[in-house]
Write a protein that binds this DNA or RNA. Structure first.
Lengths: 193, 193
DNA sequence: GAAGAAAGCTAATGAGATTAGCCTTGCGGC
DNA sequence: GCCGCAAGGCTAATCTCATTAGCTTTCTTC
């Protein structure tokens, strides 16, 4: 029998596809093995186990997300950049409902690519905030606010948490507009920086 | 041997305690049974299974959260109410790291108490927004923005997603201040209401 | 063409969820 | 007080999934 020719990468990629199809919480090693046409224990030659697969999936996802955020920000500034990155973020979460939650894991310190991808995503946000004149502690606070608002929105949306008939697209536009207003008139923390 | 004297309520409450101790994802029927001093299958006389327990846990949690939000809002208005409810929300999430994520499930339509608790939490938010003069579609958008920002923040915080040394308490204050600014100067959607 | 590492396999173990079916407790009605 | 019976708890069995151990086979390299 010829070999299946697996690599850690093919395993993680298949896991990503399955996660998007059935949801991250229903991703199992058994399903990955079945889809790749191998017996379950064979996967252990490529990944350390279910936890490690999850972490690698997170690294893949945050790298993809960071790339799309960076691309969206390219050539834009201020409110345009804010809107483009926010749209790219939500779009990624909607196209990849399984990968997206995996992307939110804290990068594993022993995986330099994971750490780098996390930093790239964060850098895309800081670049936007520079356009609003926000730096230092203000930028940290504003970046956390941006991440919170956008992440919270796409998470609640994915969970079906928005029941009212009011259009969700419209609400997201309003949320982004609210961020724009807040960033333009960023509240003074009332302490020296 | 005397009976253990379980009820659906005692089972759910013990599950809530365990979830807070070890995390919702590690909550198992086996652990609940063990803590209650019964065999695992005995639980099925009180809850339909693991999924149902999770849903009931969500109902318990959103009811608790809604109560604390309502209490925080009592006697306050405007920015004070906003700050108090936001603080109560984050506080609940920190005190109950296992219950909190369960509280985010969409209420089961066949559980009237669950639905009512969800509505109560939402009403607490609408009450705040009325203080800012936000009603109708604006209130829907603003409520989604508030939920997104606060839920996103506490979720990222719980996941350890804020790595920078900047104090997280301070960032939360700034997020709430940003919401205050946005609500006071709510962006016009540019369409008739 | 042989050696050896790498990749796959089967078998075994163990946690957890679920279902079926038994046994007993303890309450309500007499 | 006692009887009946519903409800609560149990054991046993089955299933899925994760993990480890150890065997076999396939490539690759010299």
């Amino acid at each position: 029998m010829p070999r299946a020719g697996l690599t850690p990468q093919t395993v993680v990629r298949e896991a990503a596809r399955i996660a998007d199809e059935v949801g991250l919480e229903r991703l199992t090693l058994a399903a990955v093995a079945s889809r790749l046409g191998v017996a379950l224990p064979s996967l252990y030659k490529h990944v350390r186990g279910a936890d490690a697969l999850n972490q690698k999936l997170g690294a893949l996802a945050i790298a993809e997300l960071a790339d799309e955020m960076t691309a969206a920000a390219a050539g834009r500034a201020g409110r345009d950049a804010l809107r483009a990155v926010a749209a790219a973020w939500r779009d990624y979460a909607r196209r990849h409902p399984g990968r997206y939650p995996a992307a939110q894991q804290v990068p594993a310190p022993d995986d330099p690519e994971h750490v780098a991808a996390g930093r790239q995503a964060l850098d895309a946000i800081y670049a936007i905030l520079r356009g609003y004149g926000l730096t230092g502690d203000d930028a940290v606070d504003a970046a956390r606010t941006f991440r919170s608002a956008v992440h919270g929105f796409v998470t609640l949306e994915a969970a079906g948490g928005f029941g009212m008939p009011r259009g969700v697209d419209r609400s997201y536009e309003q949320l982004v507009a609210a961020l724009d207003i807040a960033f333009r008139d960023w509240p003074d923390a009332g302490s020296p920086r």
